[in-house]
Amino acid sequence: MSDLKKKLFIVFVALSAAIVIAGIVLYCLLGFNRSAERPESYTVEVSYDVIVDLADGGAAIEKACEDSFAAQGLKYLSKTKSPMLDEDSLVENSDHLLTYTFASAPREKLAAAADAVRAAIASSGSAENAAYDGTNVSVSVHSLAQERFYDAAWRGAVALATGAVAALIYLGIRYGLSAAAAGCALTLDSVFCTLGLYAIARIPVYAYAPLVAASVAAMASALLWMLVCIKYRACFKSPEYAGLPVLDVTARAEREALPWVLSAGGALAAIVAIVGAVAADGVMLFVLPLLIPVAVSVAGTLFFAPFVYAPVKKALARRARKKGGYVGKKKAENKE
C-alpha cells in the first residue's frame, strides 16, 4: 500500500466519519429538508362555473389574481387550473378551481389579495362588461399542513438493509469473506454518507427521495465493487502473479480495475447529469442530487473498500498457511 494511498484512505475515513456524524446530528435536530413537498403552505382558491369558462376561460380572474398578488408583494410557487368533479362519480361537472400556492405569506396580505380579487370580479360583472353576469365565483384563502406517512419509510429502510445483506452474502460465497467484508463496509459508508450529505446540504427532498438515493448508493457500490472483485479473482488465479505477496496482487488488480470503475461510475454520473439537466424543475430537483450517491460510491470503491479488503485477505491467507491445509492450486498450474 503506497503512502499516497494510505493518506487518501485516512482522509476518506476521516471525511466519511465527519459527514456521517454531522448528518446524524442534523437529521435528529432538523430531519431532511422537505420543503419540496410543501409540508405547510397557503393557497388562494378561486372556484368558478361554466359562465366564466365560456366568457374568457377564466383569463380575467387569473389577471385579477396576479395583479392583486403583485400589489401585495406576494410571489406564488405554483398555479394550477383543475376541473371540479362530482364526488360520487369523479366525472367533471362544469366548474373549475384555480389554485395559487404560497410557501409562506402573511395571512393579512393573502386576505387583502383575496378581497381585491373579489372586488375585481364583481366589477367585471358591471353594465359595461356583462361577461360575468350570473356567475358563481368564490374566492378563499386556505392553510394546508401535510400529514406524514412513516410506515413506507421504515419498510423501505428495512428493505434496503435486507437486500444489501442478501447481496453481500452471495458476494461472500462467490468471492470470499474479504470481498464481502469490504463490500459491507463500502455499502454502509456509501449509504450513510449519502444520507448525511443530504441532511448537511439541506437538499430539498420528496417523501421517498432519500430512500431512492440510498438505494442508488447501495446499487452503485455493489456494481463498482463487483468490477473490482472480478479483477481480484482474475489476478489471484493468474499464474503471472503467482507467488507475489497478497498486497502486491491486490494493488495490481486495483490498477486493472481502475478504468472499469471510472468508466462505469462516469457513465452513471453522466446519465444522472443528463437526465437532471434536460428535465422539468421537479425532476431536476429529484435527479441531480443523485450525483451525490454516485460520487460517494466511486470514491468509496477507489479509496476505501480496497483498504478494507487487503488486510482481511492477507490475514485470511496467513491463517490458511498456518493451518497448513490444501489451499488449492491455480487453474493454470493444474492444467500444466
Binding site: L160, G163, A166, L171, A207, A222, L223, I230
Partner: peptide, 20 residues
C-alpha cells in the same frame, strides 16, 4: 455474478418495501 448480486438486492427491496 454481477447480475445476481443486483437482482437479489432488487428482489428483496421489492418484497419488503412499499409504494414508490
Amino acid at each position: 455474478d454481477t447480475h445476481i448480486v443486483l437482482a437479489l438486492f432488487g428482489v428483496l427491496l421489492f418484497a419488503v418495501s412499499l409504494t414508490t
